[in-house]
Computed example of a mutant assay.
Amino acid sequence: MYKNYPILAREGWPFVALTVFLFLISIYFINSIAVCFTGIICLFVIQFFRDPQRKIVAKSNEVVSAADGRVIAIEKTNDPYNKREAIKVSVFMNVFNVHSNKAPISGKVINKIYKPGKFLNAALDKASSENEHCAITIRTPKNQIITSVQIAGLIARRILCYANEGSELKQGDRYGFIRFGSRVDHYIPINSKVKVKLGQKVENSVDILAEI
């Protein structure tokens, strides 16, 4: 379920196959405009669905980013999925970021909540509550609670979450994917020490968001 596929994410295989096919067809018919157009589309699709494996270096008490992208929010707020005060760290993914989602910490998934909704720009604050999203809550061996929320965006209209209630995740396990631009909110314990800054670019499984 959580296996990485080197080079390309399996979610992108049909898209890559289609664009490569169209590119080859345009070459066959020797249409220079079509070759350029389909070639650009093919390269874009391949880069979008790239899924590099990352080496985990974080400690067991450190929360890593579940997504590649840019930190757009760090704030004390309420975790609506677990009715507690928490620090929310939001990471926005544009179409040029890796879109695989990885477990931010090791632990057991104690709940999974999917909510249909709108498809507003994922960079907006209200996207957290109004857009389609899927949240999983992970309980660590030391009984700490981390909530990771996949949020659809203006273009991203397909959230894929492979983790279920009862799943055991290791930090860095691949648990989901969001197609074509989106956002991931992390709700971490209120007394955590945040390690990132607004505007900072982060990579999933690598960059540490907080120490709990």
Rank of each mutant, 00 (worst) to 15 (best):
Y28Q: 08
F29Y: 15
F29L: 14
I30S: 14
I30R: 00
N31S: 09
S32H: 05
I33Y: 10
C36V: 15
C36F: 15
F37N: 07
G39H: 05
G39M: 13
G39C: 03
L43C: 13
I46E: 07
F49S: 03
R50M: 11
I56C: 11
I56L: 14
A58P: 01
V63I: 15
V64N: 07
A66Q: 05
I72Y: 08
I72H: 09
A73P: 09
A73G: 00
K76C: 02
D79N: 15
D79F: 01
N82S: 13
K83T: 14
E85C: 02
E85Y: 06
N97R: 13
V98R: 04
H99S: 07
A103F: 13
V109S: 03
I113V: 13
Y114I: 06
G117F: 02
L120V: 06
A122Y: 00
L124R: 06
L124G: 04
D125V: 14
D125H: 12
K126C: 06
S128L: 09
S128T: 10
S128V: 08
S129F: 04
S129P: 06
E130V: 09
E132F: 02
A135G: 02
I136W: 01
I136Q: 01
P141I: 00
N143H: 10
Q144K: 05
S148G: 06
G153C: 12
I155D: 01
I155C: 01
A156H: 01
R157W: 04
R158M: 07
I159A: 01
L160K: 04
L160M: 12
L160H: 03
C161H: 04
C161K: 05
G166S: 09
E168P: 03
